[in-house]
Nucleic acid binder design. Structure first.
Length: 244
DNA sequence: TCTAGTAATGGGC
DNA sequence: AGCCCATTACTAG
C-alpha cells in the first residue's frame, strides 16, 4: 500500500518535485488510461471501487488550480441550523453543475454555479474512465484535519436512482468512514463493523448503488492531518420534471 | 403528522 | 491527546 501523507498545502503542491528522476513524467500521458487499476471494496449492500485517477504531479497541479480558481459559498449558504443555533459548516463548500440544478443541505438550497473549464476537464476525464455522465459537482474544501463532515447519506430524492457518485480527492490524505444504517446509535439493531477507506491524493472513489441507501459516510476530524484537502463529488441529479 | 438530518459538546477509553 | 460515541432542538417535507 502506498501511503502518501501530505503535511501541508505547500508540500502537496510542491511534492511533484522529486529529487530523483524516476518519477519524471514523460509525454506518454495518454497511455495512462490503460494503466488504471481498479480496486473493489464490497460488503452488505456496500459497493465501492477506487483507483489512482491522477498521478501525484497531475493531482498537485489540479489542487493548485482549484486554489487559484474556486470560490466558496459564504453567508447563510455556509451555515447550518442545529439545535436552534446557526453554525458555520466546518469546511468550505460550493456547487457547480448544469443550469437550474441545486443541492439541498439541511434546509439550505445551494444553487449550482456554471461549469468552468477546469471542472469540465475533470468531469470529462472521470466520464472517460468510468463511462458515467454527471450533471453536478459538490466541492468541499477541508483546510486541515479539524475541518470535517458528519455522518450522512446523500439525499436519495435528489439523486438519479441507481447512479453512482464519483468522489475525487486532491491533497491531504484523510480517513473516510462508512457505517451501516442498522448499526448506528445506542439501540442499533445489528453490529456491522464500519468500513474505513483511506482517501489519497489523486484517488477517485466510486460509490455505487445501493451503497448510499444503506451506509452512512463521514470524514471525521484527524488532528494529525495538517494539510489541505479538496474533494469533488460528481453526481447525477434528477432533472426538473416538465410540468404536466 | 411524523421522520430524518445537521455539528458541537463532553465523557469514556 | 486523540478518537469515538451519545446527547442535544428545531426544521423541512
Amino acid at each position: 500500500m502506498d501511503k502518501f501523507v501530505i503535511k501541508s498545502k505547500r508540500s502537496a503542491i510542491e511534492s511533484k518535485e522529486t529529487p530523483s528522476t524516476k518519477n519524471r513524467k514523460t509525454d506518454c500521458e495518454t497511455e495512462q488510461n490503460k494503466r488504471i487499476i481498479w480496486k473493489k471494496i464490497n460488503g452488505e449492500n456496500l459497493s465501492l471501487e477506487h483507483c489512482q485517477l491522477f498521478s501525484n504531479s497531475e493531482a498537485s497541479d489540479l489542487l493548485l488550480k482549484c486554489e487559484e480558481q474556486l470560490e466558496y459559498n459564504t453567508g447563510h449558504l455556509a451555515k447550518v441550523q442545529i439545535f436552534g443555533k446557526w453554525i458555520d459548516i466546518p469546511r468550505k463548500q460550493v456547487a457547480h453543475g448544469d443550469d437550474g440544478l441545486s443541492y439541498k443541505f439541511s434546509g439550505n438550497c445551494i444553487p449550482a454555479l456554471p461549469w468552468t473549464p477546469l471542472l469540465t476537464e475533470i468531469r470529462d476525464k472521470i466520464t472517460e474512465i468510468t463511462g458515467h455522465k454527471f450533471n453536478f459537482v459538490l466541492i468541499n474544501r477541508y483546510k486541515d484535519g479539524c475541518d470535517h463532515m458528519g455522518e450522512h447519506r446523500d439525499d436519495e430524492k435528489e439523486l438519479k436512482d441507481g447512479a453512482p457518485i464519483a468522489s475525487l480527492t486532491l491533497g491531504q490524505q484523510r480517513d473516510f468512514i462508512f457505517k451501516h444504517a442498522d448499526s448506528r446509535g445506542k439501540n442499533a439493531k445489528r453490529k456491522i463493523p464500519p468500513v474505513v477507506v483511506e482517501l489519497t491524493h489523486g484517488m477517485l472513489l466510486m460509490m455505487k448503488y445501493p451503497t448510499n441507501k444503506y451506509w452512512y459516510h463521514s470524514l471525521p476530524v484527524r488532528k494529525k492531518a495538517l494539510g489541505l484537502r479538496i474533494n469533488m463529488t460528481f453526481r447525477t441529479m434528477v432533472t426538473k420534471q416538465p410540468d404536466k
